[in-house]
């Protein structure tokens, strides 16, 4: 292929990616502006809190407990190679709180919440319910988007905190039951080792990931194409985008919190 054509193609791809970033950024600003300005829809917020937060607890708990348990086993057997089995409590704590807790909870929220938000809003768009909202003098950003984003901002950090605790508990259970650790010493080591910064970074990541997950669901839902195919595509794209953005944000936030 002629190199100029290749360059043009690359340029187009970059431009369209930048345009997408711009559209999403504008959408995000709009969502936050609507969160702050009245009218508020408390009933919608309550439903969103229930869906995003409360109903996500089981899946978050499961994810965390198995991950914590597996982490303890891995560190124990890996640590045995250089006689460092004793660091299990410290590494489980660091691994869960700093990294695996927020990332896995974020990804589970992307799977569970982003997809359901995107499918619901896309279906509303396809069946003209969004148009109907507008004609009934109700702003879809305010009525649909703002409550979901706010609910994610509030509840996902809490879910991450709970996930961290359950993950550590999973590691603790495995270490005490199967690996012969002393229960009191394990807990003491965990508490002594964790710093405030670890916990703050974990919760901050949760807030950012939650906002990303809810925003992507709303954005792709509101921009859904027509028909069932449009809904399917919107759902798929929303989860992909949320997962990738969460992992990228995790990298950036980890740098921000721990490289200094």
């Amino acid at each position: 292929m002629n190199p100029l054509a290749l360059l043009a193609r690359l340029g187009r791809a970059v431009l369209s990616a930048l345009a997408a970033v711009g559209r999403i950024a504008i959408f995000a600003f709009g969502a936050f502006a609507h969160i702050l300005r009245p009218p508020y829809y408390p009933r919608e917020l309550f439903n969103a809190l229930l869906n995003v937060g409360w109903l996500s607890l089981p899946v978050v708990g499961m994810t965390a407990i198995f991950t914590g348990g597996a982490l303890a086993l891995q560190i124990y057997s890996g640590g045995a190679r250089f006689n460092a089995e004793a660091v299990v409590p410290q590494i489980v704590a660091i691994g869960m709180v700093r990294e695996l807790g927020p990332v896995l909870v974020g990804l589970m929220i992307a799977a569970r919440v982003t997809s359901s938000i995107a499918a619901e809003i896309a279906t509303m768009k396809v069946t003209e319910q969004i148009d109907a909202l507008v004609t009934l003098s109700t702003h879809p950003m305010k009525y649909l988007v703002a409550p979901r984003v706010l609910a994610a901002l509030i509840t996902v950090p809490l879910l991450v905190g709970i996930g961290d605790i359950i993950g550590i508990a999973g590691g603790y259970a495995v270490a005490v039951q199967n690996l012969g650790f002393n229960a009191a010493a394990y807990l003491q080591n965990t508490v002594d080792f964790l710093e405030l910064r670890d916990v703050v970074s974990s919760l901050a990541k949760g807030a950012v990931f939650g906002v990303i997950a809810a925003l992507m669901g709303c954005y792709y839902g509101m921009h859904s194409g027509r028909g069932a195919q449009g809904v399917g595509r919107a759902t798929k794209s929303s989860v992909e985008a949320a997962a990738v953005l969460i992992l990228a944000a995790n990298f950036v936030l980890t740098g921000v919190f721990f490289s200094i």
Binding site: M124, T127, E128, Q129, D131, A132, L133, T135
Partner: peptide, 9 residues
């Protein structure tokens, strides 16, 4: 407005 497909919530 009555929408063609009803558009009920």
């Amino acid at each position: 407005m009555l929408f063609q497909g009803g558009a009920l919530f």
